[in-house]
């Protein structure tokens, strides 16, 4: 693949801490290779800032292979940038050309307060899982794994929901800052498996209650979450969880 270098203008959100007022700051970066990842471009910028005795931009990142869910940039108005089903760390600079201006912000949601610059606090997601995102089984003598055959189609659907990396792009993309795609992906992953059925209703009820408590917005079927999800989590999961929730309401299991 042919590669090239480019000069870019970056407008990046700077915020000292969660009490301070934030603002955009403008930076120029030169000789960025089209082969770099988006975060490697940020590495170059940060090295430049250190060299100039300025404070580098704080951003979350870890595995840099699209699976840990840590990276979280809102790029030119889109969660994880323009590429379909791609995390920020997997977005590469060949998307851009010389002279482009790129605006980078943190996830924007009340339930994800800014810690510094582009870093936000996503512990609300941990608390939602705590409220019921598991199967209640202790370590020990589980029965043989093949005792319970599971229809392949069902297992595949469960896997597709389980592919969620908990990055929060769904919340950032949603005008209501709803976490329904995240919550429903977990509820579906478990409810689609026979092992997860016994707790399916109470799980949906408790996780939704916790989601509301954390200050996430409501779902109004906009679908931006599905469009921006780096793992292609489907809206079907939301419908599936809603059915579970309604059934729980009628059967009284969410009392």
């Amino acid at each position: 693949m042919e590669h090239y270098n480019m000069n870019l203008t970056l407008k990046v959100w700077r915020q000292k801490n969660n009490k301070a007022q934030g603002k955009f700051e403008t930076f120029q970066v030169k000789d960025i290779s089209s082969e770099m990842s988006f975060l490697e471009m940020f590495d170059v910028l940060n090295e430049q800032l250190v060299a100039d005795n300025k404070e580098p931009i704080a951003f979350d990142h870890d595995c840099r292979e699209g699976i840990c869910g840590m990276c979280s940039m809102h790029i030119n108005g889109r969660a994880h940038g323009p590429w379909h089903q791609t995390t920020t760390c997997q977005l590469h600079m060949r998307e851009y050309k010389d002279g482009d201006t790129i605006v980078v912000e943190p996830w924007r949601a009340d339930a994800f307060p800014v810690i510094k610059d582009l870093v936000v606090d996503r512990t609300a997601f941990d608390r939602i899982i705590e409220s019921g995102g598991y199967i209640s089984v202790n370590t020990g003598n589980a029965q043989d794994a093949n005792c319970l055959p599971i229809e392949k189609q069902q297992a595949d659907l469960s896997f597709a929901a389980a592919a969620c990396i908990g990055c929060g792009a769904c919340v950032a993309a949603c005008p209501n800052a709803s976490a329904m795609l995240f919550v429903s992906a977990k509820a579906s992953h478990l409810a689609l498996l026979p092992q997860g059925r016994p707790e399916a209703k109470i799980r949906a009820t408790n996780m939704i209650a916790q989601m509301d408590k954390e200050g996430f917005g409501s779902c109004t079927n906009i679908g931006a979450c599905e469009a921006e999800c780096p793992k292609g989590i489907s809206l079907d999961n939301i419908a599936r969880m809603n059915r579970e929730y309604i059934a729980a309401t009628f059967s009284g299991s969410n009392e």
Binding site: Y134, V137, A142, A155, G196
Partner: peptide, 19 residues
Amino acid sequence: IDQCVAQGVPFAREYGGLL
């Protein structure tokens, strides 16, 4: 493997439903 399946780890399966 038994423990993980009990927890709901969605391992790949064959058409017969087995791992």
